[in-house]
Computed example of a mutant assay.
Amino acid sequence: MCWRRASGTSSKIIECAHRRFGADRIRSGSSRGTAESLRRSCAMRACRLNSSMMTRAAYDETERSLHITFRETGRYVYYDVPIEIFEALCISPSAGTFFNDQIKGRFSCRRDPQRRRFAPAD
C-alpha cells in the first residue's frame, strides 16, 4: 500500500511506486511511470462500495476531490470534499443514503472528463 503524499521528494515517490507496482513497471523516459503519474497514484485512496447505486469511491488528497463511480451513469468528480466525508462513505452501512444525505447537492461536481461512457444528456 502506498502512504506517500504528492509533496514528497522524487526518491520517495519512486519508493512508493516500487512498493505499489514493482520495480519492473518503472522505466525512466516512458509515459508510464512518470513522476507525475506516480505522485497522483500515491495520493489517491479508494474503496469498493457494496451498493446498488455506486461501485467505487476514490479520494485525491492533493486536490481534495472525491471520485464516485455510479452503476448507471459513470464517474463523477466532487470538489473540495473533506477527507472525513470519503472515510465515512467507505464505512457507511448504506452508501446510497450517505451520498444523498451528505454529498449530493453540497459539493460542486461534474462528470469525469477522462471517462468516455454512455450517459444521459445534460
Rank of each mutant, 00 (worst) to 15 (best):
E61H: 06
G74T: 03
V77I: 15
D24K: 07
S11A: 15
R48L: 09
P113T: 05
P93W: 02
A6N: 04
R64F: 08
E72C: 05
K12T: 05
A46K: 05
R56E: 13
R71C: 05
H67L: 10
S10Q: 13
T55E: 15
Q102F: 14
R56H: 13
W3N: 11
T62C: 06
T73Q: 08
L89P: 06
F70Q: 04
F98I: 13
C2V: 05
S51I: 01
M1G: 14
P120E: 09
N100F: 10
V77R: 06
I14C: 02
A17D: 06
I103P: 09
S94D: 15
R71V: 14
G8W: 04
R56D: 11
S10W: 08
R115W: 15
S51T: 01
V81M: 02
D60H: 08
I103A: 03
S65W: 03
Y76W: 04
W3L: 12
A88C: 05
D122P: 15
P93I: 07
R19M: 11
T55G: 15
R75W: 00
H18L: 12
R4A: 14
Y78S: 07
R117E: 07
F118Q: 13
R4W: 08
M1K: 14
I91S: 13
R111L: 11
A57F: 02
I26Y: 06
H67R: 10
K104E: 11
I85F: 02
D60F: 01
C109N: 10
R40W: 00
C42E: 01
S31N: 13
Y79R: 11
K12G: 05
K104S: 15
A119W: 14
R40V: 01
S41W: 00
I13G: 00
Y79V: 03
M54N: 05
